[in-house]
Write a protein that binds this DNA or RNA. Structure first.
Lengths: 190, 190
DNA sequence: GCCTCCCTACCGACCATTCGGTAGTTTAAG
DNA sequence: CTTAAACTACCGAATGGTCGGTAGGGAGGC
């Protein structure tokens, strides 16, 4: 039994039942250990949460920076960014669900240490949008709010996406990109 | 002390700490009662949650049907629907946060009884979109997914909106409507 | 006016259970 | 022999919920 397996199992249960509804007993059972044996690998329940959150955010930042460092035009880069984000989230649902929905279960001090990383991540998106506006490709009155609308739409997918459903993560990402770039209203009405 | 006050206080604490992290002791303290006295007004913690969820969803459905029953053209009605939804959510943050983030804390049976009501609500939006498509005003390959993107962007606002921030619920709603109707890409580039 | 009865609202004490976590011991591999 | 990794047994605290009891305010009979 490795620390990794415990974290993965914990993330899965956290994502299903929520942090506070998950007991150490639940986690132990999932990895076929006694509860006490868990403490040989980890030091507390909070520590599990912190590490799951760090991994999730790290994974996302890593995948996003890869895209943002490219030199595509802003609209194309936005497409790629949306795709990277949606696919990463939906292919790592347990980690992502904990990151998005359970971070407020962090104790005060750990929480204040965690929040800046999230802001940093949101800043990546704001920068991308800003470049698009300066290049005359995008147009929006409230860029910060637009980013949050976009992130909200994508984040919410964690609540309804089912891997056995009709839509693949890639398809979802492309539809999102199309929707946000061109809007819902039909143009060039015949 | 009335049942109402207890429910409102409970919703507020649930929305802050989450259902499972909230103890009956917390709720009792918030309404200046002993824990045992709560049970004179309510029969269980789950019952509180159920009633908060029902109220929240009822409030939303009520406000949305009012809009949907009008006879504006689809794009105008979508504007109004977005405005009604966003404003209702952001002006009833405690109720809404519980509805959106804590419904999974419902016990199995109550949960299965609750979910259809949510589907019903989502159906209202799908119908609105469908009417727009048939009228040739909207264009989207996956209407069901588009609705979820829209709802996701709006729902997520509950996680970042602050009443003392620079954006009013009305302003946010209008920006959302603009974004989803016309998209981010600048048109008629000079 | 007074007494009885009942009812709502509340309380302190308590219950069984579960919680996160600890102590000390055994097992097994190098 | 050592050490990592697992175990059994246990702890104090907190949890959701129950119990018997009480303060106080009408309602109704006499």
């Amino acid at each position: 039994m490795t620390r990794d397996e415990i974290l993965i199992a914990a993330a899965q249960i956290f994502s299903q039942k929520g942090f506070h509804a998950t007991s150490m007993q639940d986690i132990a059972q999932a990895v076929n250990l006694q509860k006490a044996s868990l403490y040989h690998h980890i030091s507390s329940k909070q520590e599990i949460l912190v590490e799951v959150l760090d991994r999730a955010l790290g994974l996302l930042i890593c995948n996003m920076e890869e895209v943002m460092e490219g030199d595509s035009p802003p609209d194309e880069m936005l497409r790629q960014a949306i795709r990277a984000y949606v696919v990463t989230i939906l292919e790592n649902r347990d980690l992502s669900a904990v990151l998005l929905l359970e971070h407020r279960s962090l104790e005060a001090e750990l929480h204040t240490r965690h929040v800046p990383h999230r802001d940093q991540f949101e800043q990546l998106w704001r920068d991308l949008l800003k470049r698009g506006i300066e290049a005359g490709v995008f147009e929006t009155a409230e860029p910060a709010m637009t980013v949050r609308a976009l992130l909200g739409a994508m984040n919410w997918a964690i609540t309804w996406y089912r891997p056995d459903g009709p839509l693949s993560p890639g398809k979802i990402a492309d539809e999102f990109a199309g929707l946000f770039l061109t809007g819902l209203r039909r143009r060039d009405g015949s």
